[in-house]
C-alpha cells in the first residue's frame, strides 16, 4: 500500500494556503522542522513566529493574534500542545472561541523511540472535553490536505492531530472532507469497525481477515471525533449490531469513549474498544509499539470475534 506523510501533507497544504489567505499566521515551538510548519516559514517568513520552547506562551500569543483578526495555525508535538498548554488552550483560545487551529504532530504512540515522555495517548480526551472545541484525526495524507483546506474557512478553534509516521493512502483524489461526518469505507452487515487516524487502515486490514472467516465487517472512518456523527453511529448500531472502535489513544476518553457515550444513550449495542489500555508507552519502533500496546489488525480481529461469539448472550464475559 502506498504511504502518505501526514505532517508533510499539513506543511505543504499550509504553505500553499498562505498564498490565498494573507491573514494566515503560523506559530511553532522550536519543532517547525518536525511539524513541517518550516515549509510555511520558508515561504512566508514575516508571517511565521517561532516562540521557542514555550508552549504556554505559544498558545496565548496565538489567541492574541486571532483576537486581532488573524487565522492562526499553532503547531508543536501533540503531548505539549494539548498537555503542557492545556489551560492556555482552554481559557485563552477555546473559552473565547478564537480562530486558532492547533495542528499537533507526533500524536499517539508511533512517535516511537523517544518513548513515553513524547508519546500522546491522552490528547483526544483532554481536547474534546473543552466546550466548542472541534477534534479531527485524519486517516491519511489526502484527508489531512482536505481537513486543512476546510478548517481554514471555518472560524473558531480546532485540534487536529498529525503524525510522525506515514499512513497508508486510503482515499482517492476526489475525496472531500466534511466536518462532523464519518465515512463508510467498506460495507458489511455483521458488525462495524470504527477507527480514526492510523487505525482506519488497520480496520480495513482486519475486515479482510474477518471476511475470510465469513464475517462481513463494515469499516467506518470517524475522523471528526467532535462534533461526532451520531446519525452514522446509530445506523451502525441498528444495521450491523456490534461495534469495535480502534484508536491510537487511550481507551479512556478518546474515540471509543465518544462512540460509547453516543450509543449508550441513543442505541445501545456491544462495543469493544481497541486502544491503549490505560498505560504509558515505552521506547521502541512504531511497529513494535503497535504490537506491544495491542493496536494491530490482529487485535481488531480478536475484538470482532469476541462480539460475534457473545452477541446472542446478554453480556460479554469479564476477563
Amino acid at each position: 500500500m502506498k504511504l502518505t506523510g501526514i505532517r508533510e501533507a499539513y506543511g505543504e497544504t499550509l504553505a500553499a494556503l498562505g498564498e490565498l489567505y494573507p491573514e494566515i499566521v503560523v506559530l511553532d515551538a522550536d519543532l517547525s522542522g518536525s511539524t513541517k510548519t518550516s515549509l510555511f516559514a520558508k515561504k512566508f517568513p514575516d508571517r511565521f513566529f517561532n516562540m521557542g520552547v514555550a508552549e504556554q506562551n505559544l498558545m496565548g500569543t496565538a489567541a492574541g493574534l486571532a483576537a486581532s483578526g488573524k487565522t492562526v495555525f499553532a503547531s508543536t508535538f501533540a503531548i505539549f500542545a494539548s498537555g503542557r498548554a492545556w489551560e492556555q488552550v482552554r481559557y485563552s483560545i477555546v473559552y473565547n472561541q478564537l480562530n486558532v487551529k492547533i495542528v499537533a504532530s507526533h500524536g499517539g504512540v508511533t512517535v516511537g523511540e523517544d518513548g513515553g515522555s513524547h508519546q500522546s495517548s491522552e490528547d483526544i480526551a483532554i481536547m474534546r472535553v473543552l466546550p466548542g472545541m472541534r477534534v479531527i484525526v485524519p486517516m491519511d495524507g489526502k484527508e489531512m490536505q482536505e481537513v486543512i483546506k476546510t478548517v481554514v474557512k471555518i472560524p473558531g478553534p480546532f485540534y487536529i492531530r498529525s503524525s510522525r509516521v506515514k499512513f497508508p493512502l486510503i482515499l482517492g483524489d476526489d475525496y472531500k472532507f466534511e466536518l462532523g461526518k464519518g465515512k463508510i469505507l467498506r460495507e458489511g452487515k455483521d458488525l462495524s469497525l470504527i477507527g480514526c487516524g492510523l487505525m482506519v487502515s488497520q480496520c480495513l486490514e482486519a475486515a479482510e481477515t474477518l471476511a475470510k472467516e465469513g464475517i462481513a465487517a463494515r469499516v467506518v472512518s470517524l475522523s471528526t471525533i467532535k462534533p461526532i456523527d451520531e446519525e452514522l453511529l446509530v445506523d451502525c448500531s441498528l444495521n450491523t449490531g456490534g461495534i469495535v472502535t480502534a484508536e491510537e489513544h487511550s481507551v479512556i476518553g478518546g474515540l471509543g469513549s465518544a462512540v460509547a457515550e453516543v450509543l449508550s444513550e441513543k442505541s445501545p449495542t456491544y462495543i469493544v474498544r481497541v486502544g491503549v489500555q490505560d498505560k504509558f508507552g515505552v521506547s521502541g519502533s512504531a511497529p513494535d509499539l503497535l504490537e506491544y500496546l495491542g493496536l494491530t489488525p490482529g487485535n481488531i480481529v480478536k475484538a470482532a470475534q469476541q462480539i460475534m461469539e457473545h452477541r446472542s448472550q446478554k453480556t460479554i464475559p469479564v476477563v
Binding site: M59, G60, G64, A67, Q88
Partner: peptide, 13 residues
C-alpha cells in the same frame, strides 16, 4: 499569567 502572551499576539498582529 496569560495576559501578556495575548497582548504580544495582538501587538504582532
Amino acid at each position: 499569567g496569560q495576559g501578556l502572551s495575548m497582548a504580544n499576539g495582538m501587538a504582532l498582529a
